[in-house]
């Protein structure tokens, strides 16, 4: 394991432990946020980190998931697992709709299309009738909590956060498996040089479209988790800034490195929480929320410039093939040719 990553990971866990010692509910909330954002940033890692797709509308896909799950639960009493499933399907459909025309074009088009879709979804949600379930600018209410049968609120929160962490683990496992397989190689090949990937026979259009669709489905799941945590949704929480927070998490964590991305997520959220707490004690001639957004912008630029690989750089795709190489090396077949080059 990478040293930087290990040290930072221990610090993160330690900070959460301190929070937990002070206030359990607060720590649970913190853990939920990390799990929620980690699912979102892992989905972006699949799209951008592995496949090189520029999805600038992540928040829109989360919103689709959240609202579909929310409406199904609030208006139709659909049980929690089905809501999550529906959220994934709906977000995937939106992803495919954007992807079909754009992933075969230059990267700019996907970037512009996703950011526009993200804003379209938000403004559409704002303009839904306020007297319908959707709630318009007043927001969506009446989502049924999945663990309503647990009476103790702390225990209920604990159960739900536990479930979220479990879902996060599932997503992490899946993307890690995708990444460490021949598929991971193909996706990275497309990211590094699409024409070369085509020239070695990869149907890049299909891969890019699937990557965007599945990434969107995962974002939809994150959205559903969000809906059932707060039991209330407001269109104005799904602003583009959320998307770029997620980008920061992936960029500082390290693209195509899932552990790095989760670490990046935890770091960004902890910084956010700590500044929220600190602002009550330290007075600066600045508005902390705006300042934080400026920092998000600055961090994006600085990392791209000085550490584009992120805090935890990506690793070679891990498949059994390396054993074959190792054996060949042991047999002494990997000798450099006599003298020249090196």
């Amino acid at each position: 394991m990478d040293k930087v990553g290990l040290v930072l990971g221990i610090i993160v866990v330690a900070i959460i432990a301190v929070f937990a010692a002070i206030n359990v509910s607060y720590a649970l909330d913190l853990i939920f946020f990390i799990a929620f954002y980690a699912i979102a940033s892992l989905s972006l890692n699949l799209e951008y980190g592995y496949t090189g797709l520029s999805n600038f509308g992540k928040v829109g896909f989360i919103a689709v998931g959240a609202y579909i799950a929310g409406v199904l639960s609030a208006a139709f009493n659909v049980p929690f697992p089905l809501c999550v499933l529906a959220a994934a399907v709906a977000a995937a459909a939106v992803g495919a709709f954007v992807g079909i025309p754009t992933v075969k074009l230059r990267e700019d088009y996907l970037g512009m299309a996703t950011i526009i879709i993200g804003e379209m979804i938000r403004i559409l949600l704002r303009n839904t009738p306020t007297n319908s379930v959707w709630g318009g600018v007043f927001g969506l209410r009446g989502i049924k909590p999945p663990f309503a049968f647990i009476k103790d609120p702390l225990a209920r929160q604990f159960a739900y956060v536990g479930l979220s962490v479990f879902l996060f683990g599932l997503v992490y496992w899946l993307i890690e498996r995708w990444g460490n397989s021949p598929l991971g190689r193909v996706l990275k090949a497309i990211r590094d040089d699409e024409l070369a990937a085509k020239s070695v026979g990869k149907f890049t259009y299909r891969y890019k479209l699937l990557s965007l669709t599945l990434g969107s489905a995962i974002a939809g799941i994150a959205g559903a988790l969000y809906a059932f945590y707060f039991l209330y949704l407001n269109p104005d929480t799904f602003i583009p800034l959320i998307t770029f927070m997620i980008w920061v998490m992936v960029i500082i964590g390290g693209m195509a490195n899932n552990a790095g991305v989760v670490l990046g997520t935890a770091i960004v959220i902890l910084i956010n929480r700590i500044t929220q707490i600190a602002k009550d004690y330290i007075k600066l001639p600045l508005e902390p929320n705006y300042f934080q957004a400026m920092l998000v912008g600055l961090l994006i630029i600085l990392f791209l410039m000085f550490r584009p690989q992120g805090l935890v750089p990506e690793k070679p795709v891990n498949t059994p093939s390396w054993e074959v190489l190792e054996k060949a090396e042991e047999e002494g077949r990997a000798k450099p040719p006599g003298g020249e080059e090196q």
Binding site: D193, A196, K202
Partner: peptide, 18 residues
């Protein structure tokens, strides 16, 4: 040459398999 530049040489070659 168009390398998959963030990947190792070994992975570059493996990727090309049918």
């Amino acid at each position: 040459p168009r390398m998959f530049k963030a990947m190792t040489v070994f992975e570059n070659v493996l990727t090309a398999a049918k």
